[in-house]
Computed example of a mutant assay.
Amino acid sequence: MSLPPAQITGPSAWYGPDMAQRSAEWIRPFTAAEIAEIAAVAGPLAEQQVEIASLRQADFPLPTLGPILADLKQEILEGRGFALLRGLPVADWGLRMAATAFYGVGLHFGRACSQNGKGHVLGHVQDLGLSSKDPNVRIYQTSERQTFHTDSCDIVGLLCLKQAKRGGHSALVSSVTIYNEMMKRSDLARHLFAPLATDRRGEIAPGEKPYFEIPVFNWHAGLLSAIYQRQYIDSAQRFEDAPRLSAETVAALDLFDALADDPALNFEMVLEPGDIQLVHNHNLLHDRTGFEDWPEDAEKRHLLRLWLSPEDARPLPEVFRQRFGSIEPGRRGGIILEETKLVAPMTARG
């Protein structure tokens, strides 16, 4: 087992309160000219109802904004790990225009991946009145707190269309900082470098187990990458053939959660309509607080989501192939089943 140094330094090893004070560094408003440039491409595509899932970066040229997004992508992949683009006029645009614009901007960060067994490359994050107690329900389909986790991709993007009546705030924490703090306090971190079962929640590709076995912490090519969803680690224990969690591993997971939840490490941000949040999954975890929604369907909390795979993403260890399908940058991540056909639905139940 290859282990990192006891303390990892660099721009991704940040603390939440400090980062919250530096919002001018990571909030980047769109200019009027940039919005016009996006609209000039997205407008005709939306009007013609072009299948969004068929689009490639070349179909969405952004001669002025594109180089800015390329620099921002490097900051996400190699720097602090996240950014917030602010100010798309989504209320004026309507759903299809906003979805097309978001997808086109997202393509400048990577190829879009399927987010479920239905092949949805455009996800709708909404409360569908479901409960995570159902082993085939994923938490983003509920109004529950998600808890800190990673998604099955290199970069996750969110576009806020509608805010909740109360709550539903986004939170981030550095998994590098969590590792550093664990190492300061105990030797429990070493238990998270061993594979452990994580529930696939019913989305199982041919020949795969109903769970994957990847360590929470992975040290590869001089980089620490994390993959984590505590609820799905716990629910994988329902499978008789899943490796049992040792007392030491449970203690390590509990310490990991306590540190992730510590306001000395994490911070919250409020996504406003028109905001695009971009997060590097390999060295950050994200969370969403529980929320109370509006009673009117037209006003309910609604975000669009992208899972993105950049061609210049970091190398990943072989074990990630279990979840990512491939470990080739630009061709990895997402959930692909035998019957999967890529689509970009306009509703959460599409």
Rank of each mutant, 00 (worst) to 15 (best):
Leu158Trp: 14
Phe320Glu: 05
Gly117Val: 03
Val319Ala: 12
His120Ala: 12
Ile8Cys: 06
Arg323Gln: 14
Pro215Asp: 11
Arg166Gln: 15
Phe60Asn: 02
Gln229Pro: 00
Gly104Glu: 02
Leu172Ala: 10
Thr9Ile: 08
Trp294Leu: 07
Trp14His: 05
Met183Arg: 15
Pro17Trp: 10
Asn180His: 09
Ser54Leu: 10
Lys162Phe: 04
Leu158Cys: 06
Leu77Ser: 03
Arg321Glu: 15
Pro67Thr: 05
Asp234Tyr: 01
Thr347Cys: 08
Arg244Lys: 15
Pro315Trp: 08
Ile139Tyr: 03
Asp293Ser: 03
Gln57Ile: 11
Arg166Ile: 11
Ile233Thr: 05
His191Ser: 13
Ile233Ser: 01
Ser235Thr: 15
Met97Trp: 06
Ala313Phe: 05
Ala39Ser: 13
Ala36Asp: 15
Val319Leu: 11
Gly81Asn: 09
Gln7Glu: 14
Glu299Gly: 00
Glu47Ala: 14
Ala58Gln: 14
Ala194Cys: 04
Asp241Val: 02
Asn283Arg: 11
Val270Leu: 12
Phe324Thr: 04
Leu271Gln: 15
Gln237His: 09
Gln163Asp: 10
Ala189Phe: 03
Ser246Trp: 06
Asp241Ile: 04
Ala313Met: 05
Asp134Trp: 03
Lys162Leu: 10
Leu69Ile: 02
Leu95Ser: 01
Ser2Trp: 01
His120Met: 02
Phe193Arg: 05
Leu122Ile: 04
Leu128Gly: 12
His302Met: 05
Met1Phe: 11
Ala164Lys: 03
Leu224Ser: 07
Lys341Val: 15
Ile276Gln: 04
Asp241Asn: 14
Gly325Met: 06
Cys153Lys: 02
Val137Gly: 09
Glu51Arg: 13
Pro210Gln: 04
Leu255Tyr: 01
Arg56His: 11
Leu95Gly: 01
Gly207Ile: 10
Val50Tyr: 01
Leu130Pro: 03
Asp234Arg: 13
Pro215Val: 08
Gly117Asp: 10
Ala298Gly: 05
Phe267Pro: 00
Ile76Leu: 12
Leu255Thr: 10
Glu75Arg: 15
Leu69Trp: 02
Lys133Gly: 01
Ser54Lys: 12
Val41Pro: 03
Arg96Glu: 14
Val216Asp: 02
Gln146Gly: 03
Ser225Asn: 02
Glu296Cys: 00
Leu161Ala: 07
Phe30Cys: 08
Arg331Tyr: 12
Pro29Glu: 07
Thr249Leu: 02
Glu203Ser: 05
Asp312Thr: 13
Glu338Ser: 14
Gly104Arg: 01
Arg244His: 10
Leu69Asp: 02
Ala221Lys: 13
Ile178Trp: 06
Ala242Ile: 07
Asp71Thr: 10
Leu271Gly: 09
Asp71Val: 04
Leu172Asp: 11
Leu45Val: 07
Ala24Asp: 14
Gly117Asn: 06
Leu88Cys: 05
Arg96Tyr: 09
Leu284Ile: 00
Thr347His: 10
Asp92Arg: 13
Gly222Leu: 01
Ala171Pro: 03
Ser12Tyr: 04
Gly207Tyr: 09
Asp257Pro: 03
Leu62His: 08
Ser309Asn: 08
Ala260Trp: 05
Gly207Asn: 09
